[in-house]
Design a protein around this nucleic acid. Structure first.
Length: 612
RNA sequence: GCGCCCUUAGCUCAGUUGGAUAGAGCAACGACCUUCUAAGUCGUGGGUCGGGGGUUCGAAUCCCUCAGGGCGCGCCA
């Protein structure tokens, strides 16, 4: 959009270069960049145009740079253009051109920075996708925030975004949840004084109770209330249970003389899943995460989507029965060659072909996941992004291979990996154990430090870098807490505007800005003007953390300006004796607050009006 | 053993997809409060970008190699 002065300048520079070197090939022109130089002393913008074009133009870079600088001087927004170094052209922009960004911000509001970069692309961002086997804990939190912010970021940059949660409500984990919920149910109805401790239950049914956290007590109670004792397991003597009533995951109990009708167990499991999902969605809502689509794995399986996806691959000759080589180097102890149903992932860049079926004939998770991604493609998405924990890193290449195969290479799958978050309290790591049920839940975390601190902090690191989350630090009100620092800048902006009687934005947008000449003011204006470029760069790189860093820089520029007024009272924002300068500065303050809100909006963090 | 990710100031981390003399914060030292919020700001010191090779006008960034750390490695999701 025209609000992006970098895009504008790039077009101008390319135009000037093309006029100067008409024979320049298009791909060279595309490499021409206009960027703020690392060293601000070099000017507002620098371009590599002469370096890129020197060879095709058969001219030494400095000479070409000098010629280009001459042309660029003629541009209305350029005040100075000079060749520099090995062949750069440094540009200084007219102050009034830069200042014009301020009323632009005020006019478009928080939509400032919106871009059409991704226009026409339907992107699906899948994140969280935790098993519905328990409440959200801090381990899920980073992916939830990163995924949500990335989706917001892409939407701001013009992509048509769907936020998605893939519900893993099929498979062993959920079967185990069923048993644990059943155990809680049996305890809730307390039959005949029998021993329903976890140990006795495990012995009786020949299963392991994986999920012993207290959170399933409520599920057991709800089942007892709704179904009375009609789901209760009964001891049977010498009764043969018809095979069709068995379900593999529940089979062991049947062999031990306990009748557990599978239809009843389905009820238990479905109730547990539904209650867990409701809880997870509540937790996500507390975090400000509200996905558009919740896609159920079980419903895909039941609708035959997995068979459909496998058929699709089969039709393309990508499925075969074969035996895999053992992993290179160290062979596992219990390795034995087995014929399996395999997908030719190696045809699409993976290291080995991947199994689609378990030996009992059921599908692997991978097979179901292919169906999930095929479903997204069928719904018309042309860019798939998954946010996963780093422990799933080994899964990336096979999933990409599958998506490539299913979509004929038309739909890319990108995977953003999130590293572990170490929660710290008073310098000590907080231990987590899901089995014992002694973990830090997301809800605990939000209650302790607040949603905004959680979201902001989760975005202060690159997602593939490990992170320490210090419960004490994120609520600390000091310079080294970026959450506070950025919020404080916004609160200060609002404080000034309140002090000035909250002037109408339309009025400020019309203010003459010639008075904004202090270096701290022009630095702030330049930072504001860089926001659209930051959005595009962060979206392109799929790196929402860049927004957090930008806001830290923007807040820093503002705090500097604030303190200038402390040192020199003629630089204070509100000066009764200078109404025009006051209006100009209020416009700048309002624009700053607007851009902070725009950035916090991407991060899903609420801007505060004042610090408490 | 193989594959992927990581290694930047004493510490925690950025580094605008290959640009000019590599930056912040913390910690250390030294400044600034009758004030629109000092919960802040300014200054000083601090580096062989893990080591070595290569690609080119130019490398923290791309390729190779070695060292160290993390993750993963046929029916867990």
């Amino acid at each position: 959009m025209t609000e992006n002065i970098f895009t504008l300048l790039t077009q101008e520079v390319r135009g000037a270069l093309a006029a100067l070197v008409p024979e320049l090939p298009a791909e060279a022109l595309a490499r021409v960049q206009v960027e703020p130089p690392r060293d601000a002393a070099h000017g507002d913008m620098a371009t590599n145009a002469a370096l890129v074009a020197a060879k095709p133009a058969r001219m030494p870079p400095p000479k070409l740079a000098a010629a280009l600088a001459g042309r660029l001087m003629a541009l209305p927004m350029v005040s100075e253009a000079a060749p520099a170094g090995p062949g750069f052209v440094n540009l200084r922009l007219r102050e009034d051109f830069l200042r014009a960004q301020v009323p632009t911000v005020l006019r478009v509001g928080e939509r400032y920075g919106d871009s059409r970069l991704g226009a026409g692309v339907r992107a699906n961002v899948e994140y969280v996708s935790a098993n519905p086997t328990g409440p959200m804990h801090v381990g899920h939190c980073r992916g939830a925030v990163v995924g949500d912010a990335l989706a917001n970021l892409l939407a701001k940059a013009g992509w048509d975004v769907t936020k998605e949660y893939y519900v893993n409500d099929a498979g062993n984990q959920v079967a185990a949840l069923g048993w644990a919920a059943y155990w809680r149910y049996m305890r809730a109805i307390t039959l005949n004084g029998e021993d329903w401790t976890a140990e006795a239950t495990e012995r009786r049914f020949g299963v392991t109770l994986q999920y012993r956290g207290d959170y399933l007590v409520a599920v057991g109670d709800a089942l007892a209330e709704r179904f009375g004792d009609s789901l209760a397991a009964r001891r049977i003597e010498g009764t043969k249970v018809p095979a069709e009533e068995t379900l593999s995951a529940f089979a062991p109990a049947l062999e031990r003389g306990w009748l557990v009708k599978t239809a009843w167990l389905d009820t238990v499991r479905e109730t547990a899943v539904a209650m867990m999902m409701a809880e997870i969605r509540e937790d996500l809502a507390l975090l400000g995460v509200n996905q558009d689509v919740f896609l159920s794995e079980r419903s895909l399986v039941e609708a035959g989507a997995v068979e459909g996806a496998v058929k699709l691959l089969e039709d393309r000759g990508l499925i075969y029965e074969g035996v895999l080589e053992p992993p290179k180097g160290k062979t596992p102890e219990d390795w034995e060659p087995r014929p399996q149903t395999l997908f030719r992932a190696t045809d699409f860049g993976d290291d080995v072909d991947r199994p689609l079926r378990k030996s009992d004939g059921s599908n692997t998770y991978f097979a179901n996941d292919i169906a999930c991604h095929a479903d997204k493609i069928a719904r018309g998405h042309d860019l798939l992004i998954d946010v996963w924990g780093a422990d799933h890193g080994g899964y990336v290449s096979r999933m990409q291979a599958a998506v490539r195969a299913v979509s004929d290479g038309k739909v890319p799958l990108e995977v953003v990996l999130c590293q572990i978050v170490h929660v710290m309290k008073a310098g000590e790591p907080v231990r987590m154990s899901k089995r014992a049920g002694t973990y830090v839940t997301l809800r605990d975390l939000i209650e302790e430090v607040g949603r905004d601190a959680v979201r902001f902090t989760m975005l202060t690191r690159k997602s593939d870098a490990q992170m320490e989350f210090d419960l004490d630090k994120v609520v600390e009100q000091s310079r080294d807490n970026p959450v506070f620092y950025v919020q404080y800048a916004h609160a200060r902006c609002r404080s000034v505007l309140r002090q000035a009687g909250d002037p109408a934005v339309a009025d400020l947008a019309g203010a003459p800005l010639d008075a904004l000449t202090d270096p701290a003011e022009t630095a702030l204006i330049r930072r504001i003007a860089a926001w659209p470029r930051t959005v595009e760069a962060a979206a392109t790189a799929r790196e929402p953390h860049r927004i957090a860093f930008y806001l830290g820089d923007l807040a820093g520029d503002f705090h500097v300006l604030w303190n200038r007024g402390r040192d020199d009272s003629t630089l204070r924002f509100i000066r009764a004796e200078e109404p025009e300068a006051t209006r100009a500065r209020l416009a700048l303050v309002a624009a700053t607050a607007t851009v902070i809100r725009s950035g916090l909006g991407v991060m899903g963090v609420t801007p505060v009006e004042e610090m408490r």
